[in-house]
C-alpha cells in the first residue's frame, strides 16, 4: 500500500479537424459535474458557468464563410498561472498531472480566475439553483459547489476514482489508458465519452502505447497561447483545410 504511482500524467488531445461544434461535450459536462445552469441573464453579466465551451469563429467573407470551432476546457497547465496566486493553496498540482481545485479550502479571492489566460475558471457569485424537475439529476459523486467559491474542469476526477475502484476489483493496478477500451476500469471524462466524432481523446501521456501519446506527436499539434509558457496538458491538433491540399497529415 503506497502512494499512487506518480508516473501517470492525464492528458487530452482535441482534434479541431474532427470537431463539428455540436456541443455534446458541453451538455455532458454540465450534467456530469453539477454545473449550474447558465441563463441569458448570467451571460449578460458574464457570470455564466461552462466548464467546457465551444468557441466559434467565422473565417472568410460571405459567401465563402467557414465556421471554426475550438472546445476549450481547463488546460491543466504544468506551470499553471492560477496556482501560485492562491493564498490558501486551494488550487495545486497533484502527482497525476491534474490541476486540482479544493472546494473546501477556497475562500473566493478570485485571483486564480483573474490570472488564468484561458478563462476557464468560474466563480459562484450566487448559490446555484436548479429547477425542481432537475433536482434528481444531480450527480451524487460530485460536490454541489456553494456560493463564494471557484470551480473549473477537474478532468472528471470522480470518474477517475470510480474507474480506479473498478480496476482494483478486477485486480488491475490502475485504470486502462485507452478511453475507448470498453472493458472495466477505462477512464474518460464525460466530454470525451459524449463526443460523437472522436475529436476528444483522453489518456495517460506517459504511456507510449496510449492513443493520446501517439496523437501528441502529430505535426498538427499546438497548445493554446503557447507563447505564455503555461505548458498545458490539453493538446490541440489543428484543422486540415481540404482546399489547402497538402494533406500530408496523420
Amino acid at each position: 500500500m503506497a502512494e499512487p504511482q506518480v508516473d501517470v500524467k492525464w492528458s487530452m488531445v482535441v482534434d479541431i479537424d474532427k470537431c463539428t461544434g455540436c456541443q455534446a461535450c458541453v451538455v455532458a459536462c454540465q450534467s456530469e459535474n453539477n454545473v449550474p445552469i447558465s441563463t441569458q441573464e448570467l451571460y449578460d453579466q458574464r457570470r455564466q458557468m461552462t466548464w467546457i465551451r465551444v468557441e466559434r469563429y467565422w473565417e472568410g467573407d460571405f459567401p465563402d464563410v467557414k465556421a471554426r470551432y475550438i472546445p476549450i476546457m481547463c488546460q491543466h497547465c504544468d506551470t499553471a498561472p492560477c496556482e501560485p496566486v492562491c493564498p490558501v493553496f486551494a488550487t495545486y498540482h497533484n502527482n497525476e498531472g491534474l490541476n486540482v481545485q479544493v472546494y473546501n479550502r477556497c475562500v473566493g479571492t478570485r485571483y486564480c480566475a483573474n490570472n488564468c489566460p484561458y478563462q476557464v475558471r468560474f466563480f459562484n457569485f450566487w448559490e446555484p439553483v436548479w429547477p425542481d424537475s432537475l433536482k434528481n439529476q444531480l450527480n451524487p459523486d460530485v460536490t454541489v459547489r456553494s456560493r463564494g467559491i471557484m470551480e473549473k474542469c477537474s478532468f472528471c476526477v470522480q470518474r477517475l476514482r470510480r474507474s480506479e475502484r473498478d480496476a482494483a476489483q478486477n485486480g488491475d493496478d490502475r485504470p486502462a489508458d485507452d478511453a475507448f477500451d470498453p472493458s472495466h476500469g477505462a477512464f474518460a471524462p464525460a466530454c470525451v465519452r459524449a463526443c460523437p466524432t472522436d475529436a476528444l481523446v483522453f489518456g495517460d501521456a506517459n504511456n507510449p502505447n496510449s492513443r493520446v501519446a501517439s496523437l501528441a506527436h502529430s505535426d498538427r499539434r499546438y497548445h493554446l497561447l503557447e507563447h505564455l509558457g503555461t505548458e498545458p496538458n490539453v493538446i490541440y491538433l489543428k484543422k486540415i483545410d481540404p482546399e489547402a491540399g497538402d494533406g500530408n497529415h496523420e
Partner: peptide
C-alpha cells in the same frame, strides 16, 4: 500512519 494517499483530490472533489 498507514502510508495511504493523502492527496486532497483523493477525497475532495
Amino acid at each position: 500512519a498507514n502510508n495511504a494517499p493523502t492527496d486532497c483530490v483523493i477525497c475532495h472533489y
